[in-house]
Amino acid sequence: MTTRRHVLAGLGAAMAASALSQSAFGAPLEKVRALGVLRVGVYKDNRPWSWSDGGKLRGIDVDLAEALAGELGVKHDVVEFMAGEELSDDLRNVVWRGGLLGFQKCDVMMHVPFDRKLQIDNDQVVLLAPYYREGFAAVCGNRQADCEVPPAQFQGRRLAAEIGSIPDMYLVGGFGGVLREDVKHFNTGYDAVAAVGKDEADVAVATKAQVEAAMKDMANPAVKRRKGPLQAIMSPGWDVGLAVKDDSRSLADAIDAIVTKLATSGRLTQIFAEHGVTWQPALQAS
């Protein structure tokens, strides 16, 4: 919220007053341009997409939000929010209603799966601009040198996964439960992968982006990524996009065009690479 106040202070008192009254209502394109600010919501503790680094927000989604605002010719106001129990909670709190305790709605929410069923179930928002193809990956190190064995053979090694994630359910529930006793839980997939780099785990399963970013940061050549598929994992992958309120289609159209431009120009590849992640175009990219 200090970011928000800071941005408003720069605009002058009259503008700030008007911003406060209007920002309660998600701003379509004209309003964003008139206010001169794009308010963007990003997940808290979601490395490498968005996380707080000593009070400063960093990450792919943060950089992309700044690029979107830059292309629109406005300032950016990137705010983090805590993930709810399910994605529809986040859409309600961040995009179409706002938080019950004063969290102001954002013009755009980053990192929303671009999924037909999610769109149907949440008709108060528009999902748009898929900008990455996500999926799951595994890394090995320490006592598990061979990363290509069938996962059931990881039995007895220290396995790492984010609490409640698909990798968690894959490891504790799959293969007849033979790996269940070996799973160590972490708050994030990034932390699970980093644990292999620190010899606190032998195998980690996490999202591709978490794996690639953590491998770059740990710079441990002994940690290897699995090349083969993770047999029978519950998700084939998904596209990651953005969400705006359903009355903000003019803003959606503008952002769609900007994301296409950033993809074509190589800017997306560059932003992702700065965080160690290889950009993969979404399957449903426009």
């Binding site: 997940y43 979601n46 997409w49 993930a83 129990e85 399910e86 994605l87 986040d90 990192h111 929303v112 799966p113 999924d115 069923k117 999610l118 996500e134 409640g164 994630s165 698909i166 359910m169 999202t207 519950m234 998700s235 992958g237 998904w238 990651v240």
Partner: peptide, 13 residues
């Protein structure tokens, strides 16, 4: 639920 999402990622709910 096979296709559910949490914190921007696929999830089994």
């Amino acid at each position: 639920e096979p296709i559910a999402y949490k914190k921007g990622a696929a999830y089994l709910g």
